[in-house]
Design a protein around this nucleic acid. Structure first.
Lengths: 219, 219
DNA sequence: CGGGCGATTGATTGCCTTCAAACGTGGTGG
DNA sequence: CCACCACGTTTGAAGGCAATCAATCGCCCG
């Protein structure tokens, strides 16, 4: 069902599109749940685009704690580096279809065409905005606020109505928000108790009151 | 001071340098302590470079809490946007000399010269790396870890030996690290107690044991 | 000398983490 | 088809750490 949407959107799903002036044909690859796509420090030879499924970008702090910096959902491009190596790791959250394009193609396009360079710049700028938004969430003190903000984000990305499926586990959410899985779970329960959401299953979220959710996010 | 500005022997103090291929002459301006340099949502007509002093980049969450996203120290470039408006505010932490350059000059240079475009890209990429590092600090759980990590960062930037001056107040540090001023103060005291640092004054930091500090940073 | 501001210290509260156990679901093998 | 296990999730109880409230200190400046 979602293959329909994706096939249509890319008019050939094996293309990576960074803007009107930068569209490149690539190879489609399948990654299984929890498979590593690339690791921190590895040579950055490709960039990637999610066709279906989800990807987590992550790093480990020196004491072994995992930090998830972002989730990539269908349509998102990731792994594009300026330097020679990847500055973080990427894994498939669940079974995922990924398109890969050699980075050298991007570099050539950017060197030849200023408009392509601008597309690349736009991508970098968007990444920065997302990273700042994430830092803002992490700066929030309360667990409920963080989880509410996360749900608002995900509903904008995933939802075509009032409900959607979370691609990732509680553990992933916890590592993204700087909390424990127990705290995340408790926040979900609390939001259900306040009739902001309903959870038919642990992964399926129904937004009952967007305003209540927005309230929890702000305070 | 105009004669100073025209003096090329100023070794480019009134020049913004984004790399070998992108160097632009600007105007030097003075900002007083706590003066706003630009506000969130304002038109982004200039980019800036710190000559002396320090600048804080910040946003406010919906409930009024201030979040500092980064400090800019001498040499740092800030305020360069791809869109029409600034995505955050900037204020002088203390009296500061700032060089301003019209953004249109950068855009023209980038459109004409691919190497200039690449410098801009490099700047964006560096900003992203810093934002991620910040997110990593905020994701760490302990207050001591955050403050230790902050001191390590600042000592790399500010210090030419074992000691340096912090340009910003405890309140600024707290809003950067997602803590309260009391927690920051207690962490400083704790690090003094462990003989990692000494504080001759509240702003002047002496690093007594970099290894102890590194240990606290890790966890 | 007095006032004001930032920083430190102390006492208490509250929230999140930790440790622990129970629950539910999906998958496998009997 | 059902029993059973594994895994992710939820819930409970207790402790720890940072926030909060409040008072004092030190310093700069008038």
């Amino acid at each position: 069902m979602n293959s329909q949407a994706n096939d249509r959107a890319a008019s050939g799903a094996d293309v990576i599109d960074l803007g009107p002036a930068l569209s490149l044909r690539g190879v489609r690859v399948h990654f299984e749940r929890n498979a590593e796509i690339f690791g921190e420090g590895e040579p950055a030879e490709y960039l990637y685009r999610v066709v279906s499924g989800a990807v987590r970008k992550m790093r480990f702090s020196s004491d072994g704690r995992r930090q998830i910096l972002a989730f990539c959902l269908p349509g998102d491009v990731f792994g594009l580096e300026l330097g020679d190596t990847h500055s973080l790791s990427a894994e498939a959250v669940n079974n995922a279809e990924i398109v890969m394009v050699r980075r050298s193609l991007i570099e050539k396009a950017a060197a030849d065409d200023p408009r392509a360079a601008r597309c690349w710049l736009q991508y970098a700028s968007d990444s920065l905005a997302k990273a700042r938004e994430h830092a803002l969430i992490l700066g929030r003190k309360g667990a409920n606020e963080r989880v509410a903000a996360f749900l608002m984000l995900m509903s904008e990305r995933c939802s075509r109505g009032q409900d959607f499926d979370l691609p990732m586990s509680r553990s992933d959410i916890a590592d993204y928000l700087g909390l424990t899985i127990e705290s995340v779970s408790r926040s979900f329960t609390e939001m259900e108790r306040q009739h902001a959401i309903t959870l038919p299953t642990s992964r399926h979220v129904v937004i009952d009151s967007r305003s209540t959710l927005a309230l929890m996010q702000a305070a």
